[in-house]
């Protein structure tokens, strides 16, 4: 990534509308949010950073934040584990196989996340597909609780966010020089060695991109978290919603939003920069 950073002012002109939109739709609300979060009480009376102190003093709030980040990380990890077999299958397929895999990956993106979430409710529910199958087969004596559990939530979010991981991973795999794999094979390496010493390290950029996308998307997936997680699992998005709409404590929910945003962006930044150091030399593929 050695693109020069010197741009003629005129070259930046086409980017202006986007910059304006970014300013109006992201930066301005953020400034408003910062402003709101600095009030002491929900009545907007007195300026003070008390909301932030309140957050970090409150064990419950901190736990909610950490669990939300953990959820994002778990979903991203699981997606990563699934994306490589899919990507390798794609690489090894002919034209028809590739078209089919692409279609299956794109398909979830074409349905709304509300629909996909309801599909998971049908699958995981007490009378859902999983329970009825296991009961019919006699493998379980009584229906297990799958919906409103952490595991169910991770699985559902993984399926919903998987395209964000699979596409960049496939893209990296396609850009991998096939002669490198042949070179490794010719030197005597078996499949696993080739994967872990050549394929994986050289597709790290795609994996990181996918990981970050899935992480951010899963951690902030309000609808899926709320519907599949139910009321039992409190995570940042629903916590913010509850504080803002239910309790009507705008300053605190603004502070929650900002802390959450900073935490997600911070992790994205951290993972992005540290992993780039691992990926040294890969540009030369």
């Amino acid at each position: 990534m050695s693109g020069s950073a010197t741009h003629e002012p005129r070259q930046l002109l086409p980017a202006l509308p986007l910059a304006a939109l970014f300013l109006a739709a992201f930066v301005l609300p953020l400034i408003v949010l910062v402003f709101i979060s600095l009030f002491r009480t929900p009545q907007f009376l007195e300026l003070s950073p008390i909301q932030y102190v309140k957050f970090f003093r409150d064990q419950f709030s901190v736990t909610v934040l950490l669990e939300t980040l953990l959820l994002g990380a778990e979903v991203a990890m699981l997606s990563l584990l699934l994306a490589y077999p899919i990507g390798l299958a794609y690489l090894g397929s002919g034209k028809i196989g590739r078209a089919l895999i692409t279609f299956l990956i794109i398909l979830p993106l074409l349905t709304s996340s509300v629909v996909r979430t309801f599909a998971w409710i049908v699958i995981l529910g007490r009378d859902g597909i999983v329970n009825s199958t296991m009961l019919t087969l006699g493998l379980w004596d009584s229906p297990a609780r799958l919906l409103y559990t952490w595991g169910g939530l991770v699985v559902a979010l993984t399926q919903i966010q998987l395209p964000l991981m699979a596409l960049p991973v496939i893209n990296s795999l396609l850009r991998l020089n096939p002669n490198l794999v042949k070179a490794a094979e010719g030197l005597g390496a078996g499949r696993f060695r080739i994967f872990f010493t050549v394929v994986l390290p050289l597709t790290v950029p795609g994996a990181i991109a996918g990981w970050l996308l899935v992480f951010a998307a899963a951690a902030t997936a309000f609808i899926t978290q709320t519907l599949v997680g139910g009321g039992r699992i409190v995570l940042m998005p629903s916590y913010i919603y509850q504080q803002a709409v239910g309790v009507q404590d705008w300053p605190f929910s603004a502070a929650l939003s900002l802390i959450f945003t900073v935490a997600v962006i911070g992790i994205v930044f951290l993972v992005g920069t540290t992993s780039r150091r691992f990926a040294r030399g890969i540009d030369a593929v």
Binding site: K182, A183, G186, L187, G188, T197, P201, R280, G281, I282
Partner: peptide, 20 residues
Amino acid sequence: PANRRRIGMVFQNYALFPHL
């Protein structure tokens, strides 16, 4: 299989592992 033939191959653009 290729990985047990003990053939030294030098590729057109060398195919050195760029990360190693």
